[in-house]
């Protein structure tokens, strides 16, 4: 079971990461949810005692026969924290959509690089004399097409 749990944690985590590095904002958030799920799974698995529900009076009579209540409490806390932060993330991506009019990270990255380069050109006029350094934003845009 140790291996099974480890594998499950790894697969959920990996899938989450795969989604986090996608271009679609919504997928990124889904990825974060998966990653946090893997953490909760791991926490509960870490108390892999599979005993009785920790409600007194216990059938075995002592604490050792119950499933670990502390990991459950920890998992609960972690679950609630990550899910509420997900709500924040969702409103963030909505704001990103509103300000950039896109759900595509590539578009947002291009916008970001453009701003950075505009700033650079403003602060260091000498750069414009150096045409070999083409803007990185163009490159990225090309790549994302």
């Amino acid at each position: 079971m140790i291996l099974a749990f480890s594998l499950a944690v790894a697969v959920v985590f990996g899938s989450g990461v795969f989604l986090v590095i996608q271009r679609d904002l919504l997928r990124v958030v889904v990825g974060i949810v998966l990653i946090s799920n893997s953490a909760s799974l791991f926490i509960v698995a870490a108390g892999l005692t599979r005993g009785a529900v920790p409600i007194v009076p216990l059938p075995g009579g002592d604490g050792a026969s119950a499933s670990d209540p502390l990991v459950q409490a920890m998992a609960l806390t972690a679950l609630i924290i990550t899910s509420s932060v997900t709500a924040l993330l969702l409103s963030l991506i909505y704001r990103l959509y509103v300000s950039h009019d896109t759900m595509d990270i590539e578009d947002i990255s291009v916008a970001e690089l453009r701003e950075a380069e505009a700033l650079e050109r403003k602060n260091r006029p000498e750069i414009e004399e150096n045409p070999e350094k083409g803007p990185a934003a163009e490159e990225l845009e090309e790549r994302s097409r």
Binding site: S6, G63, P69
Partner: peptide, 25 residues
């Protein structure tokens, strides 16, 4: 990464005398 961390941790025997037992008590 996750697999290594999870497996190496879960492979360890769970600790004796956990504070959780205190909690139940």
């Amino acid at each position: 990464f996750a697999f290594a961390v999870a497996w190496s941790a879960l492979s360890q025997p769970a600790a004796e005398n956990t504070v959780a037992e205190e909690h139940v008590r």
